[in-house]
Design a protein around this nucleic acid. Structure first.
Length: 616
RNA sequence: GCUUCGAUAGCUCAGCCUGGUAGAGCGUUACCUUGGUAAGGUAAAGGUCGCGGGUCCAAUUCCCGCUCGAAGCUCCA
């Protein structure tokens, strides 16, 4: 069955004469419908009740999306060349009418020649075509997805000396992670049978969890998770603003009728959340691009102002990934992502900026606790770009100091001519992109962002799209997976100290030392260190054990000796050793490790005994 | 979206194959214990066994349907 579905403001049709003998017996009269979804239908050979049922389900789903309750089923033979017989076609149509009886449904007469007038609405979802078959699912893939699978890629490995060879000829024995990435990208085949470790950890550490009352892929963050997330957000923002990014804030939803947006959305698979509000079709953003481009469009720009760097920490960006694609903190439908665009006057300025942002991204990941050994670089570009900028690519690979996966396209298909990303390879052999940058040569024009060059001629800028860390949730995912990897190798799992929800825990041996603990905790807090007190009526052993399982780096047991001493007795989880050092040395040891990182106060009650229990 | 698996106490799960009034550990509460570097003790509270149907004298258990969730696959601009 083939369907053409149109969301119309009005539709009027008049049966004029019988086209075939078996046409329905009716009295011809003009029908006029307002605010209606008109569905042109060609019933094909082999279509039956199952197909009718599927078709109606599809139609209902999309009508629900666009918020329209009125449906007109309109027999339309011209959509197909292998039509069903008139009799079976009519019975399928009648079946569909019946199945849709909970809507305001009507059906145009079968077998008649009709005149019609219709006015189609102008939003992206107003016009869709579908092919529905008995076994296969309906074919509703957007043009962008279809052509994407058609692009031809050539894969290579480039070594730091600039040598580029085909992946089949490369010896991966010293680069197992790169091999995983290469297979992941080129063969797209992998099988895993256990759930990813970070999902268990995100719950156990009371960082984040699924929220059953929301849509899948929209997470809840507990106090620990919110603290970690907020620290990472601030760290990334600080780094981007020192690079020169101007922090802005833009709306999370956009009118799909807007002309610039409409053509941009058409360049992408239709995987966004849609909201109907007061007759507007709103789309939740999937990146900060629109907001920043629309903003830049309204700026009065000269080449002297470029490169102009706009930046936003998008909380949230939304992508309506297929339900089965969602995994813990790795792949979400709502996520926080830094997005920094640089508007450049020409390619040479873009390349200069590209270099800075590549270094920025590496530094940001390094500060977050992820180093070159934790990720693999992939660079993708058009053949033309490569021929003109070989040196840039070779230099970039050299910086990373290890072989890099290269994807080359014969033609430019996307809006960019070059894109790179750092991929975290987890223990299950899955690659997840963290940092990324793109050189965009299309959207300056699409959004009509103009600047005036040295000759006072209007020009469109080249735009770089950089996310120096990737999604913040994904950074947490990578940190947890890395911790799980450590733990598997017999090392102690931990988070970077500056991200630990509790950095120091005090354990009083008896309640009579509680006051001393309070005073000590005040002093430590004054030094901008997160400290809490386990004042529960539990054995020392148990409280130490629990602090260990919470990955708390420093444990101070407070008893008679400590109260009467100027030194502190510190259990360092990293070494597993006990050491007696002065208070000041202890504080500076911590400060040394967390310097140049943002600080937030403890995001829990200081006293463990009065905290709600979030995770067992 | 497809495939598979799952849904029993606040959490993690057992019981189901072989139908007969519901189990553990953790957590919670109370009491005891005041302990010196990875789990101190005793007791109590806590369940419409996801929803709907069917089979049966009897269903948490067997069968069918639904809902929700997860993992994998496809996918990831």
């Amino acid at each position: 069955m083939r369907i053409l579905q149109l969301h119309c403001s009005s539709m009027e049709y008049t049966p004029t004469k019988k086209e075939i003998e078996s046409a329905e017996e009716i009295t011809p009269e003009t029908k006029n419908l307002k605010e209606v979804v008109v569905t042109f239908i060609a019933v094909e050979e082999g279509d039956d009740k199952t197909v009718a049922k599927k078709a109606i389900a599809e139609i209902k789903e999309s009508m629900n999306k666009i918020g329209c309750k009125k449906l007109l089923l309109y027999p339309y033979a011209h959509l197909s060349s292998k039509l069903a017989s008139p009799n079976s076609a009519l019975s399928v149509l009648k079946e569909m009418e019946l199945l849709a009886s909970d809507l305001d449904v009507s059906r145009a007469p079968f077998g008649w020649t009709k005149t019609y007038k219709l006015e189609v609405k102008g939003h992206p979802l107003a016009e869709t075509s579908k092919v529905i078959t008995k076994d296969g699912s309906s074919d509703d893939t957007s043009e962008a997805v279809k052509s994407e699978s058609k692009i031809k890629s050539y894969w290579y490995i480039m070594t730091p000396d600039g040598n580029m060879q085909e992946i089949e000829k490369f010896n991966f024995s010293k680069h197992p992670q790169l091999e995983v990435l290469t297979k992941y990208e080129t063969v797209k085949k992998r099988s895993v049978d256990e759930p990813p470790p970070h999902v268990r950890l995100m719950k156990k550490l009371a960082i984040a969890d699924y929220e059953p009352a929301s849509d899948s892929g929209n997470m809840r963050f507990y106090p620990n998770g919110r603290l970690i997330k907020s620290l990472i957000e601030r760290y990334v923002t600080d780094n981007i603003t020192s690079y020169g990014g101007l922090e802005v804030e833009t709306p999370i939803m956009y009118d799909s009728h807007h002309p610039s947006l409409e053509s941009y959305f058409n360049r992408f698979p239709a995987r966004q959340y849609n909201i109907n509000s007061e007759g507007k079709q709103l789309i939740l953003r999937f990146a900060a691009c629109f907001g920043q481009f629309l903003m830049a469009h309204d700026f009065q720009l000269s080449y002297r102002n470029l490169p102009l760097k706009l930046y936003e920490m998008t909380r949230y960006s939304f992508r309506r990934e297929q339900s089965g694609e969602l995994v813990g903190l790795r792949r979400l439908r709502a996520f926080t992502m830094p997005d920094c665009h640089a508007f450049c006057k020409d390619m040479s300025q873009a390349i200069e900026e590209f270099r800075k942002r590549f270094d920025l991204s590496r530094n940001v990941l390094h500060g977050l606790g992820l180093n070159e050994s934790d990720y693999e670089l992939a660079i993708r570009f058009t053949e033309e770009f490569y021929n003109e900028n070989k040196q840039l690519i070779e230099e970039t690979v050299k910086k990373i100091g290890k072989p890099v996966l290269i994807e080359m396209w014969k033609e430019q298909f996307f809006y960019f001519v070059l894109k790179w990303e750092f991929n975290y390879i987890d223990s299950q052999g899955k690659a997840s992109a963290l940092s990324t940058d793109q050189i965009d040569v299309e959207n300056g024009k699409r959004y009509n962002i103009e600047f005036f060059d040295e000759q006072n001629k209007p020009q469109y800028p080249i735009i770089l799209h950089n996310s120096p860390s990737g999604a913040i949730e994904r950074v947490i995912f990578a940190l947890l997976e890395k911790a799980a990897k450590d733990s598997k190798e017999g090392k102690k799992a931990h988070l970077p100290l500056w991200l630990s929800p509790t950095q120091v825990r005090l354990i009083p041996i008896k309640p009579e030392f509680l006051q001393f603990c309070k005073n000590l905790a005040d002093k430590i807090t004054d030094s901008k260190i997160r400290v809490d007190v386990d004042d529960r009526n539990e054995s020392i052993g148990k409280r130490i054990r629990e602090a260990e399982t919470e990955w708390i780096r420093y444990i101070l047991v407070i008893g008679e000796k400590e109260v009467n001493s100027k030194d502190v007795n510190v259990r360092d989880r990293e070494t597993g050793e006990l050491k007696q050092i002065s208070f000041d040395d202890f504080i500076s040891e911590i400060h040394e490790q967390i310097k140049n990182k943002p600080f937030s106060h403890l995001n829990s009650n200081r006293f463990v005994s009065i905290r709600p229990q979030i995770m067992v």
